[in-house]
Design a protein around this nucleic acid. Structure first.
Lengths: 137, 137
DNA sequence: TCCTACGATGGACGAAATCCAAGTCAAGAA
DNA sequence: TTCTTGACTTGGATTTCGTCCATCGTAGGA
């Protein structure tokens, strides 16, 4: 059993075939899939899995901190299984490809106290944008 | 006439009453409105303006670089008229309130060459998240 | 094996945004 | 000023993404 399923089981997750397949889809490929793509890949192994179940399961994985939700543009959210390694995203403005990147330092430290307006900061996301080599042609 | 309308006119924008009202709504309040809120405020002055026109006009303003589109979460996009002053956003995880903030340095410089993967970078957006004083209450 | 509470199902629903064919009008031409 | 034309607007249909809900199924403990 994968590390992911193992961790979930330890937390009392009821392990259904549907949840197993969704977790395996995410665990298997470290790319950034939409909910619909996750559903399509899960349906290859479990043809009658419903979209509601995929949404429910993804939501739980996000709540449990196993998966990160990425809203890159105004389109479908993407799900990033690389939740245990802090990182940011680099997105191609041409084709929409997403890469995980590791900038120097912690973005949070760049926001001085007088720019925090009394907020209790919990995190910062950085999205770099540019043309990938293929799109720059 | 406002600076915004002046700039648009110089670029050959056909100035219709609908476009004028949308531009004035954005120019007047430096808050982050959704398309629906822009439509509601525009309709106060021009009751029969259609949603499609508001969406069209907002899209053109974004293309022209006069307005920035902010996709905070999976909800409606917000439109930020403060496009000529580089800034980032601080969002309350409780109530969704958005503030413009000015972090130190340029986020782009934090991404080392070996993390750029051949991309031609065009920009970086930083979203700080936390609880605002009212929600932390 | 049996129970039962938790999870899955799928169709209806809703929000946000886009599309499209038809009607309207800003602004340059005469 | 009036005319002309192509760009702009309209509103309803459509698409996309996601949630809700009543009902059915089943994982896992007793």
């Amino acid at each position: 059993m994968s590390d992911l399923l193992e961790r979930l089981r330890e937390r009392g997750w009821r392990l259904t075939s549907q949840r197993r397949v969704v977790a395996e889809v995410l665990d298997g490929e470290h790319v950034h899939l939409t909910a619909d793509e996750v559903h399509a890949r899960a349906a290859e192994r479990l043809p009658e899995i419903s979209r509601a179940t995929v949404y429910n399961t993804l939501g739980e994985l996000v709540t449990l901190g196993e998966v990160i939700e990425v809203s890159t543009d105004g389109r479908a959210k993407r799900y990033d299984p690389n939740a245990h390694h802090p990182h940011q995203h680099l997105i191609c403005t041409g084709c929409g490809a997403i890469r995980d990147v590791h900038p120097l330092g912690d973005p949070l430290t760049d926001l001085p106290a007088d720019q925090r307006f009394g907020f209790a900061l919990s995190g910062a996301e950085v999205t770099y944008r540019g043309l990938c080599p293929a799109c720059a042609g």
